[in-house]
């Protein structure tokens, strides 16, 4: 089994946390994991991507090739579209609904969302609203993990454990809110 995920977003949106939670959960499930990250100048408000590879056997490289990704998981709809060439024919796109508009030439927002919805397997998640329902607008990235979790080759309890472990130092209330965000995301169609 191999499961390759391209993570997209804008620097500062927390895609490294998304990657870290899934990676931790995969490892706890006995899978091999490779995770490539973006550090340095590219992190400053620009387009960022991370490659996350899960497998039950050895993984050769840190990068995913075009036409090989099982999932694009994006914190931002325009950024989701940026990576569609990486998708397998049956690959999924799971994207947050909220645009992050920090450029002058951002296209019409409805058109962007329309393009995501028009993908063969495009799923749009109202991360911001659900995070607010969970009581913490900054937990949008955990809503996204929740939405992705239905399709990942990982059991939900492992993902919950990973969220708990990652946020333990921030106190119980923060952990609970993020677990709630995870659940709301998972329930999202």
């Amino acid at each position: 089994m191999k499961y390759d995920i391209i993570l997209g977003g804008v620097g500062g949106q927390g895609i490294l946390s998304v990657a870290a939670v899934i990676a931790q959960a995969a490892m706890a499930s006995g899978l091999e994991v490779r995770q490539s990250e973006v550090h340095g100048m590219a992190q400053r408000g620009g387009a960022v991507q991370a490659h996350l590879r899960l497998a039950d056997g050895p993984i050769h490289g840190d990068l995913i090739g075009l036409g090989r990704a099982d999932m694009i998981l994006s914190m931002e709809p325009l950024e989701a579209l940026r990576y569609v060439d990486y998708l397998k024919p049956e690959g999924l796109v799971v994207s947050a609904e909220e645009p992050y508009n920090n450029i002058v030439d951002y296209p019409d927002e409805a058109m962007v969302l329309g393009a995501v919805a028009a993908l063969p397997h495009g799923i749009i998640v109202q991360t911001k609203q659900l995070a607010r329902e969970a009581g913490n607008p900054t937990a949008a990235n955990m809503v996204l993990v929740g939405a992705a979790s239905k399709y990942l080759p990982i059991e939900l309890p492992r993902i919950r454990d990973a969220v708990k472990a990652r946020l333990a130092s921030k106190g119980e209330a923060v952990v609970e809110m993020n677990l709630k965000a995870l659940e709301l995301g998972r329930g999202e169609k």
Partner: peptide, 23 residues
């Protein structure tokens, strides 16, 4: 030869998003 991709062409060109100074 390249692997077959599942992409459908995005019907408009995507603007770049270069890094910028933090808010």
């Amino acid at each position: 030869s390249p692997l077959k991709s599942g992409a459908v062409a995005v019907p408009f060109s995507l603007p770049g998003r270069p890094p910028q100074l933090c808010q």
